[in-house]
Amino acid sequence: MKSLADLEAIRKKTLDQVTLRKDEDGVRIIVGMATCGIAAGARPVMNAFMEEVAKRNLEHVAITQTGCIGMCRLEPIVEVILPDKEKVTYVKMSPEKVAKVVAEHIVNGNPVTEYTIGAAE
């Protein structure tokens, strides 16, 4: 390493990986991972989110799971919470739909209405 720029590059690269441990408000992606969710294919959905977040190098994004929220027929269910915004609930998710949610909602802040629980009901 010969310059401050090199140092900054390492800092940036690693920060993505450790930012999870800071008490900061970021985007939260919550995947329903109860038996119903897992059976409906929640794990591939979660993996797709992780790949997408990694691919785009997104900072301040936490992916967590939760239990059954009671609408098993609509699983896999994913909730996305942007800082200071209302929670958006996506239903009947699939790995294919993930890229669109990440690009439009998480990156640009526009919820993908067609996948939400409001559209399904």
């Binding site: 401050l4 140092l7 390492i10 800092r11 690269k13 690693t14 920060l15 990986q17 450790v18």
Partner: peptide
């Protein structure tokens, strides 16, 4: 060392 650098490590030395 990367994690130390991520939390502003070696910035002071720089």
């Amino acid at each position: 060392i990367d994690e130390y650098i991520a939390f502003d490590g070696y910035k002071a030395l720089g």
